[in-house]
Amino acid sequence: MSTEPSHYHRHVAEQKRAAIIEAATRLFLDSGYASTSLAKVAEAAGVSKATLFKQFPAKAALFDAIVSESWKVDDVVSPPTGDLRRGLTAIGHRYVELLTRPGMAALFRIVIAELPRFPELGEAHFERGKLPYFDSVRRYLDAEHAAGTAELEDTELAATQFLGMISNYVLWPRMLLLDWSPDEASMAHVVDEAVLMMAARYGAITR
């Protein structure tokens, strides 16, 4: 007899995991990281404490999962090289989708609010969320440089510049303005302008 869980049991486990992560995010934001216990999360998620502890034996592990889930993208493969504008446009729109996901702004607020007491939350957010995504953009720029379609001496700086132009409009005002909600056309325009600036600065000159 196979010891592998059935499709049904895997589906149930995934549903419970999603409920736990959603409940924990809400409680962390409402009550703070320190005041939220795993028992409270289990109650809010509608699962037993045994079920929660089986998946997340510590609160830090649960927060790590929240970060990883929030930054996960379906398309992790970089665009093909050869067309810097097209590739950056695809990355830019994917970044907008990521930053405007429900709960992303809340996740940043949790980290910022709790950082003085729990610096490990900031480290987790950086190491398991922002850094892997940033590295994917840097690798794409490395590939364009290697292909001769971009002239880049510092791809880390270039990736910072590109993502910063987008997040400075899409995400960071949400940290101070609860009603900040630019429409899709405005965000698409920001991406287009960021791509044009990157292409003007780093695009290879063909002769």
Rank of each mutant, 00 (worst) to 15 (best):
R117K: 14
T51G: 04
R139G: 08
E43A: 15
A113N: 10
V170W: 00
G92D: 03
T89F: 03
V111S: 00
L27R: 04
R128G: 03
V137S: 02
L88C: 13
V77F: 06
P132G: 10
V73F: 11
G82I: 13
E120M: 06
I20D: 01
T36C: 06
P80K: 13
V12Y: 11
V67M: 05
S167D: 14
T36G: 01
M187E: 02
T36Q: 03
T100M: 09
S70C: 05
S48H: 03
Y33Q: 07
P80L: 15
T100I: 11
V47D: 01
V111Q: 01
E43D: 09
A60T: 12
P173M: 11
V111D: 00
K49L: 08
V191T: 04
K49I: 06
R207T: 12
R207C: 10
K130T: 13
D135E: 11
E43S: 09
K49F: 07
E184P: 02
D154F: 11
S2L: 10
T100E: 06
E22L: 05
D74F: 15
G203A: 12
A24I: 01
F108A: 02
I20L: 04
M165H: 09
F118L: 15
H9I: 06
V190K: 03
W180H: 11
K54D: 10
P5N: 08
T51R: 06
S48L: 09
G122H: 08
Y140G: 02
A61N: 14
L115G: 06
L29E: 05
A105P: 01
